[in-house]
Each structure stands twice: as C-alpha cells, then as structure tokens.
Design a binder for these strands. Structure first.
Lengths: 194, 194
DNA sequence: TAAATAATCTTTACGCTGTTAAGATTAAGT
DNA sequence: ACTTAATCTTAACAGCGTAAAGATTATTTA
C-alpha cells in the first residue's frame, strides 16, 4: 500500500488503521499523532492534510470501529429466524458484550469521549442516534410492542436492557475482573436474570 | 490554608482538591500537573515532593472522589429501615446513578482508567474489591440470600443489578443524551423494570 | 541551644507532544 | 504545457511530564 514515492497514496485510511492498531497494542493513553504518522512512514505534519486535528483523526477511527461493531450486531439480529422473538434482543446483547470482551481496548476508546447522540425517548429525532443503540432500539420497539407492552413499559424496558448490556460490557472489560465463569456461556443467564 | 511562606503547609491535600476542581471545570483531558501546581501557587516540580508521578496524584484524587461516593452509598443503605428489604438495593442503585448525574465528570474520571479490583464471584478474595461494588455486594448477598435464592441466582443477580445500575450511570452521563423524563423520578422505575 | 538531617520547594533542562507556517513535490485539470 | 490544487517535508513554537541540582525551612539529634 505504501510505496516510496513522495505521496503515500492511501494515507488517510492508513492513519486510521495504524491508529486503531496502536490503541490495540499500547492503549489509548499511548496514542500520539507522531507515532501514527511514523508508523505510516510519513512526517509528523503529514496527517494534517487529511485531518484537521488529532481529535478529528480519532473521530474517524471511532467511526471505523463502530462500523465493525455494527456488522456484528446486524449479523446477530439478521441470524435470528423469528424477528419477533425477544431472544433476538438477548442475542444482540450477548454479541454487544462479547465484542468488547474480544476487543477490550475499544470500549474505553469509544466511550471515554462520548460525542454520540443518544435519544432515549420513543419519540423525537433518531437520525443522529449512536448507531448501535439505534439498531437495538428499532428492534426493541418492534418486539416489545408485539408483546403488548404499554408505551411507558417499552421505553423503560429499552433503557433498562441497554443499561444492563452496556454495563455488563463495561464491567467485563475492566482491568482486574475476577470471574470464574466463561463470559460467553454466562452472559445470557445474566441478562435473562432481569 | 496557603500562606506566602516558602513551604505551602498543606500542599498534598491542596493538589488533590485543586486537581478534582480542575476536572470539574475543564474536564479530564485538560488536567495537567503544571496547571494544578499553578493553582496551588507552587512551581511545576513541587508536586513531586508528594507524588511520584501524575498517575500517582490522579490515584489519590480518585480515592478522594470514591470516598465521597462511598458516603452517599453508605448513607443510602443506612437510611433504610428494614435491612432485609430488597428496596435497599434499589435505593443504593438510585443513589449510585444520581451521584454521577450530579457529578458527571467523575464518571469518566473514575472509570476511564479502571485500576480497581472487581471480584464477581461469591467466593474469593474481596479485600481489594472496588469499595462501592463491595458495599453493594455485601448488602446484596444478605438480602438475596434471605429471599431464598440459589447460590447461582444470587451471583447472577448481583452482576445483573450492578451492570444495570452502572450502565444507567454511564448512559445518563453521556454528553448528548436526550431524555424527556426527570432521572431522579424515573431511575427506580427503570431499575424495577428488571 | 547548636548542629545535622530531612522535607519541601525553585530553577533549569530534556525529550515528547499537538499544531502551525513556509516551502517542496507531485497529481489533476485546463 | 501550464496552472492549480493536493499532498508531503522541514522547522519552529508552546505546553507537557519528569529528572537533577540546589535553595529554603522544618525537624531531629547531640
């Protein structure tokens, strides 16, 4: 991808991927623009042709990771034979948690600076919603609605479920968590415990 | 507290308080040792007489904030007339979330670098457990045990409840959360929805 | 009390960081 | 072929964490 010419050719994408790789290897605190530029074989100021700041690059990195995350969640929802089965929500929740257990560095990265919009109301503007939450919300409204829940129950239920799943991901990715069980096998039980 | 003499007199505590104040005002990303030192009226290197690194100071700041947090949780548990009523857990959960809604900057600060130990098992060493979780766990074991739950149900239940409460705090403190209700009035409903 | 020691603070300096400015190189468009 | 725009390099700046050397003051010891 990177040749020896003056122009890199694919610097923008390379910076995003190198930045994510650096977070995976050294953690978000060790992420620096100069390291990322160096990994791509360009000078320290080269990134400024593609991003207006470090924050801007990190935003693009975040979007990329969220894209990977969305693929996992959409696959989980799609693979469910009955789209009205509440187990679809549990399956999504399970994949939500497992994604961050498999990629622990991503959790702090995505949620440490949370610039995403989150609309917890059933009404209102969802167009700028944090995509993973919006996906969960869409399925939840349909499924819980089919179960005959009241409007208010649905709203509370969605918040409660997402909080449980999100909190579980947060706990599971903490540095020194002692847990004798296998997350993959227990997550469903814990969510169902609700 | 701070006089004009060569020695500050109470620098260690002043640094901790000034650091927390700075996080509240400018956010954790703007926290720097030099700013904190300047706020205390001492030179940039003065903090090194009391802390061996910025991380070390931040650890002390974290301990201080966790102390404030613990006071709130202990008060919530203590104020419950019947110590075996499951509502004690909900009340603690409510205060858990409200604490971070009232002090949003503390959430990212405490949980962005999570060095705390967390033992999710009913057995094992709890001595180094993250104190707020340990407090919740202690009460939960007693209360859920009194309800005749099985060992496994209790373990899953504690994790599920903490995840819900912790996740709720995480969501409620996100930057652009749209929610038409008042958190203070709704938190209980959302937790009870479990 | 006087001297020695330890704690606390200042000044200076180093390398790393994000960012800007000026200019070199190359690609794209006319 | 010439112009323009995009992309890159080099150089420089201020702010950062931190270490070293030395000044000042409190504390201990003789």
């Amino acid at each position: 991808m990177a040749n020896k010419s003056y122009h890199h050719g694919n610097l923008r994408n390379s910076l995003i991927e190198a930045g994510i790789e650096l977070i995976n290897q050294e953690g978000i605190n060790q992420l620096s623009l100069r390291k990322v530029a160096s990994l791509c074989g360009v000078s320290q100021a080269a990134p400024y042709a593609h991003f207006k700041s470090k924050e801007d690059l990190m935003g693009a990195m975040r979007d990329h990771v969220i894209g990977l995350f969305m693929e996992v969640l959409e696959k989980a929802a799609f693979s469910c034979s009955n789209q009205n089965d509440p187990r679809l929500l549990v399956e999504m929740g399970k994949r939500y948690v497992l994604f961050f257990i498999e990629n622990p560095k991503y959790f702090t990265f995505i949620f440490s600076q949370h610039y995403m919009e989150v609309n917890l109301d059933l009404e209102g503007d969802d167009t700028k919603n944090f995509p993973p939450y919006q996906l969960f919300k869409t399925h939840a409204i349909r499924i819980l609605g089919n179960m005959g829940m009241t409007y208010e129950k649905i709203e509370d239920g969605i918040i409660s479920m997402w909080a449980t799943v999100h909190g579980l991901a947060s706990i599971a990715t903490m540095k020194n968590v002692h847990y004798s069980k296998e997350w993959g096998e227990k997550i469903e039980d814990i969510i169902w415990n609700k």
